[in-house]
Structures are given as C-alpha cells and as structure tokens.
Amino acid sequence: MTGSIIIRYVNPWKFRRDQNAQRLTAIRGRDGDNCRRCKRPMQFDLPTGHDMLPRVEMIVPVSAGGSEELDNLCLTHVRCNAKHGCDTAEVKERARIKNESDLFAKSKQKRRRRA
C-alpha cells in the first residue's frame, strides 16, 4: 500500500481537500481565473463563506447525464452558482403564480378601501 491509499482511510477529510485542490488547480490552468457566468476575475484568498469565492460547478448535471470528469467542470463564483439553481421552469412558474396572487390580493384590498 502506498501513502496516498493509507491517507485516504486514515484521514479522509485531508484526502478530499487535497483532491479538490488538485481539481481546482487543473480547472484554473485550463479555463483561467474568470467566472464562467459573469466573466469577472476570481479571488482565491477570500475567507470561507464569502459570496465571491470560487466554486466548482458542473456544466451538465449528473441528473441530466453529466459526469464528474474535468471536461464537465468549470469555475463560478458562489453567488453566480446560487443564482443558477433558481432558474428551473418549476421555480419560475411558482414565483409567477405567487406574484399574480399577491397583485390580486392588493387590488382587492384597494377596492374594499374605496367602498
């Protein structure tokens, strides 16, 4: 057994951190330091939890037949990636219905005030 296989079982968190760092370095080398969505430069020295931190995103999600290969990964800001999650048709339809019902309720209240 080599050292990397042993560390995988002894300290899996360190192994995963190292693996993610290698993947991030490979993607940075391929794509550069700009966000794929907003095209702004990334900052890699920000504190944890900052919304401008880089995040690895899948171009084609696993649910749609994508894989976790490097060809299917790209870098985005945390906030750019979060915006993308709300772009599904179901979420947009729910928001549209909610907005319409709110407008209808407001117009009803105005009519009651006038009467």
Rank of each mutant, 00 (worst) to 15 (best):
M1L: 14
G3C: 05
S4V: 09
I5C: 12
I5A: 15
I6S: 13
I7P: 00
R8P: 01
R8M: 12
Y9S: 12
P12Q: 02
K14H: 10
F15R: 12
R16H: 09
R16S: 12
D18Q: 13
Q19R: 14
N20C: 07
N20P: 00
N20W: 06
N20V: 06
A21L: 05
Q22V: 10
A26F: 04
I27D: 02
R28M: 10
R28I: 05
G29T: 07
G29P: 01
D31A: 02
D31N: 01
D33Q: 07
N34M: 04
C35V: 00
C35K: 03
C35R: 02
R36M: 05
R36N: 04
R36V: 02
R36Y: 09
K39D: 09
K39H: 10
R40S: 11
P41F: 02
M42L: 15
M42A: 08
M42I: 06
Q43I: 10
Q43W: 10
Q43F: 12
Q43G: 03
F44K: 01
D45N: 09
L46N: 01
P47I: 05
P47W: 06
G49A: 03
H50R: 00
H50L: 04
M52V: 02
M52D: 08
M52H: 09
L53V: 02
L53P: 01
L53I: 06
P54C: 00
P54G: 01
V56Q: 12
E57Y: 04
E57T: 05
I59K: 09
I59Y: 08
V60Y: 02
P61D: 03
P61R: 04
P61G: 02
P61S: 03
V62T: 06
S63G: 13
G65E: 02
G65Q: 06
G65I: 07
G66H: 03
G66I: 07
S67D: 15
S67M: 11
E68R: 14
L70P: 05
L70M: 10
L70I: 10
D71C: 05
D71H: 06
D71Q: 07
N72Q: 04
N72P: 05
L73P: 05
L73Q: 09
C74Q: 09
C74A: 04
L75M: 03
L75W: 00
T76V: 08
T76A: 15
T76E: 11
T76D: 05
H77E: 00
H77C: 04
V78P: 01
V78E: 08
R79V: 05
R79A: 11
R79T: 05
C80F: 02
A82H: 13
A82R: 14
K83H: 14
G85N: 13
C86G: 12
A89K: 15
E90N: 06
E90W: 07
V91L: 15
K92C: 04
K92Y: 03
K92N: 04
K92P: 01
R94C: 14
R96D: 09
R96S: 10
N99F: 11
E100N: 08
S101E: 15
D102Q: 11
D102A: 13
L103T: 04
F104M: 07
K106P: 01
K110V: 11
R111G: 06
R111Q: 14
R111I: 12
R113G: 05
R114Y: 04
